[in-house]
């Protein structure tokens, strides 16, 4: 399972990176979103998979999965949401004001 997850993580990172390197703003945002998923899965995999029950002490299990990565991922999800929202608004504002969503044309002047 861990091996499979590692491969999936690699694929998600590769796809996300390729999207980030493209010129369209929307593709870049989608790329960051995909990389975010990759990071979350990476954190989860690092803690070990299916080592026990969910980390709820009320359940009658003896072993639990590692709760720390889960807490970190929870934080990551929410921050990812916040940055994605900000990025989205920033990009469509840029498009409306400047009339282009091509990163290459957003570069400004040569002497900057």
């Amino acid at each position: 399972m861990e091996t499979c997850m590692s491969i999936i993580i690699g694929i998600l990172f590769a796809v996300g990176t390729y999207l980030i390197l493209s010129k369209t703003l929307l593709r870049i945002i989608l790329g960051t979103s995909i990389i975010g998923h990759g990071v979350n899965l990476l954190l989860l995999t690092m803690g070990g998979l299916k080592k026990g029950g969910p980390p709820l002490l009320g359940l009658n299990t003896l072993t639990f999965t590692d709760p720390l990565p889960q807490a970190l991922i929870l934080t990551a999800i929410v921050i990812n949401f916040a940055t994605t929202a900000l990025f989205l608004v920033l990009s469509y504002r840029a498009y409306k004001v400047l009339g282009t969503d091509d990163v290459e044309q957003l570069r400004g002047y040569n002497d900057e």
Partner: peptide, 13 residues
């Protein structure tokens, strides 16, 4: 904070 921030974003957009 989550409610306030999220709804601010959505309403603004």
């Amino acid at each position: 904070a989550v409610i306030g921030a999220s709804l601010t974003i959505i309403i603004s957009i």
